[in-house]
């Protein structure tokens, strides 16, 4: 029940702030849409006409997932930086629920809110490109859930580093390109990448959305890798976060910016 109250409070706060910063949210959404339109136009103009449809479909899925991973992973780092700047990080740290729980529910609420934005962006992109992908919610949902959990793990690592270093904005900007590489590279190029966070998940979603694969057509082994990745990266993320929090409390870095 305490978890649920924590989740409710943080989801409400995220929603209120999103509403209060509405012009900022709309601008961000428009920027992402304009970049997509540019990419779409580029494929049409200089791409190989024989693979044009497939290229556009890949671009839509990869781009949407890049947006989601970018929002989920980077947002928690920026949250820590903002809380430290505002001075509220110490108040969060004093909650008897523990900061890692607050950050977990913030990740959940951010992901939920961003999923709504992603769905809008997805349908907008499909309508612009005139390419309608296979949106099989029953198959996509469990893959997405496990993929997002591994993203949370990476998010926690970023959050932990942010607690100690604070000035990580430059790193977060570089990270978006790393995330882009991870979301755009197909697994067939290098199967070992399946063990990196969320790469396996995006590959499976591509199978469903582009090639129309059903749940029973997906490999059990792929699901196992996905599940392992989710658990492994989440556990590592929490471990790194708690370690960094302890270092910050030992060195008195919690209030520093």
């Amino acid at each position: 029940m305490r978890w649920l109250n924590l989740l409710k409070a943080n989801t409400k706060k995220e929603y209120i702030e999103l509403k209060r910063y509405l012009p900022n949210t709309i601008a961000m959404l428009l920027t992402f849409y304009i970049i997509f339109v540019g990419m779409f136009a580029g494929i049409q103009l200089i791409g190989d006409p024989s693979t044009q449809d497939s290229n556009i479909q890949y671009a839509i899925v990869n781009y949407i997932f890049w947006f989601l991973s970018f929002m989920v992973i980077n947002s928690i780092g920026y949250e820590i930086i903002n809380e430290a700047m505002k001075g509220t990080l110490e108040q969060l740290s004093m909650s008897p629920m523990g900061m890692w729980r607050i950050m977990t529910v913030r990740l959940i609420s951010t992901t939920f809110i961003n999923l709504v934005i992603v769905i809008v962006l997805l349908y907008l992109s499909m309508a612009t490109a005139g390419q309608w992908l296979n949106i099989d919610v029953i198959t996509i949902a469990p893959i997405l859930l496990l993929t997002v959990i591994s993203m949370f793990g990476v998010g926690f690592i970023i959050a932990g580093i942010s607690i100690i270093l604070k000035q990580v904005q430059a790193f977060l900007q570089i990270l978006q390109f790393i995330l882009m590489a991870l979301t755009f590279i197909p697994l067939s190029v290098s199967p070992v990448l399946a063990f990196l966070p969320f790469v396996q998940g995006i590959d499976m979603v591509r199978e469903v959305m582009i090639h129309g694969a059903a749940f029973n057509q997906l490999q059990v082994g792929d699901f196992m890798i996905l599940g392992f990745n989710a658990l492994f990266y989440f556990a590592i993320g929490i471990g790194v976060f708690l370690y960094c929090e302890r270092v910050a409390m030992k060195k008195g870095l919690m209030a520093h910016y």
């Binding site: 029940m1 305490r2 978890w3 109250n5 924590l6 409710k8 409070a9 943080n10 409400k12 706060k13 209120i16 702030e17 209060r20 910063y21 108040q91 969060l92 909650s95 008897p96 629920m97 607050i102």
Partner: peptide, 16 residues
């Protein structure tokens, strides 16, 4: 960027 009431409710929620 939150109101007086929103702050009170948020911090209470943060304690579960």
């Amino acid at each position: 960027r939150l109101t007086v009431r929103e702050n009170l409710e948020y911090f209470a929620g943060n304690r579960g």
